[in-house]
């Protein structure tokens, strides 16, 4: 598939538009702020792209993020674990949550919408239990992930960028990516072609869970604290970014690179609207409109192509 020019152009238009309305927008600080703000959103959006491509959905990622971050923080603060151990525990927790969602979805042939809705509650509740319903401060213990390297760019941003590039290549060029696209297009046809869709689907949800946990670690490092209320509603923000990037909710179609543009559009919109002094409610109204317009454009593009 050729890279469509629509998304980069839309992004450019937003940047130029905000640049014209606010004299502070086109500064280094803005871009550094955006770059350091988006790693968590980015890695989760990458995972969600895979999930949507197999025609699934995962609503639990905000809670899984909170649980994984909470667990890492508690392991360091209360149990005295060292950083690598605690971080591994957090990632393993995300991996476990995702695998569970995937396995239940596949084993009982339930819609992932429902299963992940259950997981949303389970993980959120667990996050409260683990953190004793209190924000856990860890100080600068894993600050390294968000300390600026050069030009104010953090390792977290570079890691997210690397994940975007790697995932894009995997989806386009690997047998695994090919299977996912096939499964999202016609699961029964794939089964009858001799490819068992079940393990692949579980892997995708496991990946999603792990990336949500990674997002949790990124936030933890930046905020130096794990809030059991972290990531509430984040699943919707992530899905919005992915959909703006042109991935189909019906499965079988999507691109990680376009997802990244979707993330950038969401982030620029957020930052730009804040700078021109839009109120929070107004920001939400505008973001909502952008989502709908993006989907409309996508539908229109497809119709025209089909003639």
């Amino acid at each position: 598939m050729k890279q469509a020019l629509g998304l980069p152009l839309a992004l450019l238009a937003l940047v130029v538009g905000f640049g014209l309305t606010s004299e502070y927008f086109l500064t280094r600080d803005t871009f550094i702020a955006i770059a350091n703000d988006i790693p968590a959103l980015t890695v989760m959006a990458v995972g969600m792209t895979f999930v949507l491509i197999i025609a699934g959905i995962d609503l639990s990622i905000g809670s899984v993020l909170a649980l994984s971050a909470g667990l890492t923080a508690v392991a360091m603060q209360s149990w005295g674990w060292n950083l690598p151990g605690a971080a591994t525990l957090g990632l393993a927790c995300g991996l476990f949550c995702g695998t569970l969602t995937g396995a239940v979805t596949v084993a009982w042939r339930l819609p992932s919408f429902i299963v992940s809705l259950g997981m949303l509650e389970i993980a959120r509740g667990s996050a409260y239990l683990v953190t004793d319903s209190r924000t856990q401060y860890i100080g600068g213990a894993i600050g390294g992930l968000s300390t600026p390297l050069w030009f104010g760019i953090s390792p977290a941003f570079l890691l997210a960028l690397a994940i975007v590039v790697a995932s894009h290549i995997v989806l386009r060029k690997s047998v695994f990516g090919r299977y996912l696209v096939g499964i999202g297009t016609n699961e029964e046809a794939m089964r009858l072609a001799g490819i068992d869709p079940r393990p692949w689907k579980v892997i995708v949800f496991a990946l999603m869970g792990s990336l949500a946990a990674l997002g949790g670690l990124m936030q933890l490092s930046r905020l130096e604290a794990a809030d059991p209320n972290a990531g509430v509603g984040m699943e919707l923000q992530v899905i919005a970014a992915v959909v703006i990037g042109g991935t189909s909710l019906m499965g079988g179609r999507g691109s990680v690179l376009n997802t990244f543009f979707g993330v950038l559009i969401v982030a620029v919109l957020e930052a730009g609207l804040a700078q021109i002094g839009a109120s929070d409610p107004a920001k939400r109204v505008i973001t909502g409109c952008v989502i709908i317009v993006a989907v409309l454009l996508d539908v229109y593009r497809n119709r025209r192509k089909r003639g």
Binding site: K173, S174, F176, R178, N186, M190, L192, A193, G194, G252
Partner: peptide, 29 residues
């Protein structure tokens, strides 16, 4: 339509999907 084709995907992908090992090396197409 419902049990064979991957509608919305390329002819080539539809053709090779049952035997990707012939057009891939170490998991890469």
């Amino acid at each position: 339509k419902s049990q064979g084709l991957l509608l919305g995907q390329a002819l080539a992908m539809n053709l090779t999907i049952a035997h990707l090992s012939t057009v891939s090396r170490k998991g890469w197409i």
